[in-house]
Amino acid sequence: MEFDYLATVLLSSLASASILLIATIGLAVVFGLMGVINLAHGEFLMIGAYTALTATQAGVPFLLSIPIAVAVTMAIGAVIEILVINRLYGRIFDTMLATWGISIAFYQLAVLIFGTVTPGIGMPQYSIKIGDYNLAGYSLLMIFVAALMGSFVYLLMTRTVYGMKARASIQEPAMARAIGIESSRVNTMTFSLGCGLAGFAGAILLPIVPATPSMGFAFVIKAFLTVVVAGPVTLTGSAIAAIGLGGGASITASFLTSVAGDVFFFLITAVLLWLFPLGITAGWRRKM
């Protein structure tokens, strides 16, 4: 095996893992801090993508369209939390089913509003060369974006008052209430944040994954397998699981077939759950 091929495979697999992580972080935050699996996560990604797309079509530069997408998805997320999730607190499977209902409703709404035909915005035509091989620059940029997103969420959770409250609400709910933290408001904030992160992902990935009503399905399955494999220490766990599963699948696909990559992903997920029935971070003492 030539060295330059190996290097490109590793680099592009890391980029694949980063894309998975970007798509996953919002889900991980909501799961980690609220114990809720948001099956509509993929549709928030889609909403983010469509918002950014609509904004760019209206003449807003792509970079500015990203915060707009975040704001829109956060707002919709907050409304959904207040109307639905709030009433189902502690009923994890009911929440899953309700968010699944939301997901198919959003999907069909997107079909109604945007139709099935919407133009993509294209990837920046910039690539780097390693030996004989080209790599798309924008995909590689995702490695940094994933790292930035991860650090942002980590700092938000450990260094801000909101983060302290959010973690207190999940770890010591009774104590949190006793010292006056309104957990329902914190939850609204957390869910909204999770949706905002999904919106960010949808917008930043728009050049790679064109906006279509069904784009959510493609991501959400792997994203939520990643979160579940990650276990209770969601952020660090998701990063490790995304790199292991996403990167591993990508490397497998590079040397074998793409189908083998997918099978690798699902099989390793099953094996990890067998070995770590509560997720890979179940025994850890870290908190984020």
């Binding site: 993509g120 294209g122 990837m123 035509q125 798309a136 995909s139 790679i208």
Partner: peptide, 8 residues
């Protein structure tokens, strides 16, 4: 998209 962005 990915094929074009890789400059191929």
């Amino acid at each position: 998209e990915q094929f074009a962005a890789a400059g191929l």
